[in-house]
């Protein structure tokens, strides 16, 4: 067990260190998100009613798109420099190493999003009663993006031009997330209880976090050979 934990921590430490050496890669998706969100008021007009109605959808769609932007980093560099095959050769279940990498990706992409979410809600004039719900949907939904994204990247990592294909594979799988998240935020914006969709999102999150490492492992075995 100690070996398992040690390897989990070692992978996280190394990946965080590598990420800190490439800070621009970390900042770009967040800046992209900010720019996309400022584009909407310009595009649909700055009327507060319109904005507050589309706010949940806009924030969520932008969050998914910006997540796709940096997603390939989960495995692509490791695939190129051989760290991925070394990961498959570690003397622990590969699923744990995969989970460590997913955790790092979540920390690097979702934490800034969670910190900035109130700002986005403010910019898009989201009803204040829905702010909390928006934050909870992001908290529950972003691990799903990281997990499902890891499966997609693992499937396409050996392709030279996997980018567009990756979006084609992942966006459909993320549609349910989008539907439940926006349903929850809209419910609490209109004074209804968001419990139903939030419970579903929590269930989806638990399932994907538990099951996706197995799918990622299977996909990596196909890609690394």
């Amino acid at each position: 067990m100690t070996g398992l934990l040690a390897i989990f921590i070692a992978i996280m430490r190394r990946d965080l260190r590598v990420a800190m050496r490439q800070r621009s890669d970390l900042l770009n998706p967040i800046l992209f998100l900010l720019v996309v969100i400022t584009l909407f008021p310009l595009g649909v007009g700055p009327g507060p009613d319109v904005l507050s109605r589309i706010a949940p959808g806009v924030i969520w769609v932008s969050a998914i798109l910006s997540a796709l932007l940096g997603l390939e980093r989960i495995f692509r560099d490791d695939f190129r420099d051989g760290a991925l095959e070394q990961m498959l050769l570690l003397p622990v279940a590969v699923e744990w190493s995969v989970l460590a990498k997913i955790t790092v990706h979540w920390l690097l992409t979702a934490l800034p999003l969670l910190v900035l979410a109130p700002l986005f809600a403010l910019l898009l004039n989201l009803t204040p009663s829905a702010w909390g719900t928006l934050w909870v949907t992001l908290l529950l939904g972003t691990p799903v993006i990281s997990c499902v994204g890891a499966i997609g990247v693992a499937l396409t990592v050996s392709l030279n031009k996997g980018g567009a294909l990756l979006s084609l594979l992942l966006l459909p799988l993320l549609i349910p997330l989008l539907i439940f998240a926006t349903a929850a935020v809209e419910a609490s914006a209109t004074g209804l209880s968001p419990a139903g969709p939030l419970a579903l999102m929590a269930a989806i999150m638990v399932l994907t976090v538990v099951l996706s490492p197995y799918a990622v492992h299977a996909a990596l075995r196909v890609s690394v050979n």
């Binding site: 499937l155 396409t156 050996s158 299977a218 996909a219 196909v222 890609s223």
Partner: peptide, 10 residues
């Protein structure tokens, strides 16, 4: 064959 396996997982 790699493509078939990847598609199969999906």
């Amino acid at each position: 064959r790699t493509g078939a396996k990847a598609a199969g997982i999906l």
